[in-house]
């Protein structure tokens, strides 16, 4: 379970941050999740709602997800294009030699806390 694996680490990072910054309650966490990160956001939220109950500082922490669009670059012609729309084949020159520039991330952007 990919989502649960990430949630465990997310909770740990937030707990560490709370300890370092002397926070008693984290009200929300904003994550930036890549469009092709493989994270199923509905499922991710279910995991979060289940898991946060185990951590007192996270009890009422809302999960806010922002999507990072996936962009692929073509090694043959150098152009960028939308990964989700065109897949691995470059729509400009039809080369298959392409790579993902962004869209695979899972970044903790910010928290709201007191």
């Amino acid at each position: 379970m990919h989502e649960m694996g990430i949630i465990i680490h997310l909770a740990k990072t937030l707990e560490d941050t709370a300890r370092e910054e002397g926070l008693v309650r984290i009200g929300s966490v904003t994550l930036r999740v890549g469009e092709v990160s493989g994270i199923v956001t509905d499922y991710f939220e279910d995991c979060w709602n289940y898991f946060k109950k185990r951590h007192p500082v996270l009890q009422d922490c809302r999960l806010i997800i922002e999507t990072i669009p996936a962009v692929t670059r073509c090694s043959s012609c150098g152009q960028d294009y939308e990964t989700v729309k065109y897949g691995r084949e470059c729509p400009y020159c039809h080369s298959g030699e392409t790579w993902l520039v962004q869209g695979n991330e899972c970044v903790i952007k910010q928290i709201e806390a007191e």
Binding site: E21, L31, V107, I111, E112
Partner: peptide
């Protein structure tokens, strides 16, 4: 409540 920017990989604790 205050906003704290983290901009950390979600897996940074594992790293």
């Amino acid at each position: 409540m205050k906003v704290i920017e983290l901009n950390k990989n979600a897996l940074s604790s594992n790293d």
